[in-house]
Design a protein around this nucleic acid. Structure first.
Lengths: 187, 187, 187, 187
DNA sequence: GATGAATGAGGCTTCATTCAT
DNA sequence: CATGAATGAAGCCTCATTCAT
């Protein structure tokens, strides 16, 4: 029934209709209530189940020891493909949208995703700093700065891609160029 | 009636009830319809009226000629105070939330806000690059990278500030340190 | 303000909006209430005032002495021009529409219009019968039969003229041909 | 749910409240929407379902070969019983009332009812004319003249029957007397 | 007198939830 | 277990009516 994520990410929590969720899932409306107490519960379970798998991936990256530039390239690839290029970006948008109304979701997301991701990133960044692969200590204090363009990518992809196409991969690489002090091509 | 922004940012577009908006505004429900054709129009007008002044600020900053580091500091200050520190951040979140369902809103936002802001930023960045105040040409191609931490700030402030307080100002300054290749402090 | 008859005949009692009535009359909405207690009163006064002028004309018809065929031709001409071809047909339709909900209107219409019209017609028909200008005594008992095609004309003109144009005048003449036992053409 | 015809014919389309329709039908308001898209559709379906059977009757009468006087008597009987003497007369009145505001209804009525009925009548009348059972060719050109007293009957029954009882059957027979050139009584 | 902004009851419609089958 | 017809609360919106100016 998790394929009813479609409806929530397409329309948001309030606007999603359980009728459509049921139709898309190929079951009757009543069936949903055999598995979920109500619409809100369904939403929370859904968010939980979608986000849990993400976490593992990222933490394993922190564990592997490799030069930061290589690691960073991999992160860009993973993020571009598995997040911005997938339905998962919609989950992110959903959390931004509904987080204030469902604090439990924001809680869960912070606890199970963000804090772990940022902790992994911090490790990675600290190691890179120690090795002299990185010049900016500010990144360790604010790993959000490493992730910020990803958020931009997620939002842009969802809202403005048709108005003004943005080359997500190129943008993320440009970001790496800045952080790694590469000149981004030319000279 | 812009004080009905409260309801929208509190509950989202769909969940906000015009009854509550009216109550909060101290008028009758019907009165709203004397000034706005419908709920959607109210939302659009609200977004318009909240964001328009901000654009002005940013565009005038682009016009003034001053060293990039100084300008950047001012931008940080304006953004931190007038956007992240104000009700305007909720408008941003609302647009992220509802933009896919109300393309007119995403349209408007792109046309009236983003394209103008990014065009101003591009000018600023190009000038800084020409003067040698900036080392990263990638920023001109992707002014989104300059703005990305602002988006992080907006979202964080709304969703996670209570869980994990984030010093927005410090983060934005750290970002500037990176872009300007300052070392972010003492040594 | 009787020019607000437009709205009632255009949309019916319920659907007519006093806003539009006022706009069309070039006055403010509130002004209507200086002259009429409420929408219902306005409607009743309107119907009354539109129907009253009709009454006088009719009775003079019975008084004039002329051959029935001539009189009948005149009646056709008057009806076609002054009723079916004018805004008055809408009054008829309004009475049909709202008569059951406003018995006072049906009452008034029967008393002041129909009963007098039919009484005049009865006299005319009786005289024609006595003179041998007419073969059908049934018409005296049911003057409605003389008037029936007029009702058809009114309704057709309002509802179906665009689908299937009907030559009203020709139809009414064909009716006379039948009643007067003319053959409607040939010999 | 066709028993909700009561409400429409009692109050007209606009004034009828779906609440009352539901109450009278003994269902909840929402149930109506399981079967009809909206109020207008309900009205259209109602008109359709009430009138369709009547058309069949009349068309089958046209198919059967019998002397015109006999056929005409039967038509009078059918119309008096199944139309003027039934709830169907209210549907006719409703169509007259609402036809200008809902062209779809006038369309439907013309297409599915009037054009078929008049086409059948035209056949019948032509046949009668050919056989010398009828003297008036004008009726073939304007079958409306045959039907006109029915419209009078419908309207009279609805609006004036209490003021001035009209013997519908007698009137329709008097009409036949005229058309068939019978003397309608004594000698 | 005239205005028209404001009101708020009331209607149509939606949709989460229930429950008899 | 599953269904889906039925429910009815609740929301958006309209518009007759009022009343301070």
């Amino acid at each position: 029934m998790a394929a009813a994520l479609e409806e929530f990410s397409l329309r948001g929590f309030e606007a999603a209709r359980l009728d459509d969720v049921a139709k898309r899932a190929g079951v009757a409306k009543g069936t949903i209530y055999l598995y979920f107490a109500d619409k809100e519960t369904l939403f929370q379970e859904l968010a939980r189940s979608m986000l849990t798998p993400l976490i593992g991936n990222i933490e394993t990256l922190a564990a592997v020891d490799m030069p930061f530039p290589v690691l960073a390239e991999r992160l860009v690839a993973v993020v571009a493909d598995e997040l911005v290029g997938s339905r998962r970006k919609d989950i992110i948008r959903l959390i931004i949208s509904e987080g204030t109304r469902f604090p439990a979701i924001a809680d869960f997301y912070y606890r199970e995703v963000l804090s772990r991701v940022f902790s992994a990133l911090r490790q990675i960044l600290q190691r890179a700093l120690d090795r002299g692969e990185l010049r900016h200590p500010g990144l360790v204090a604010f790993p959000q700065l490493l992730a910020a363009p990803v958020l931009v990518a997620v939002v842009w992809q969802s809202l403005f891609q048709t108005h003004a196409p943005l080359d997500i991969r190129a943008m993320l690489n440009a970001h790496l160029d800045i952080l790694l002090d590469r000149d981004g091509g030319g000279s």
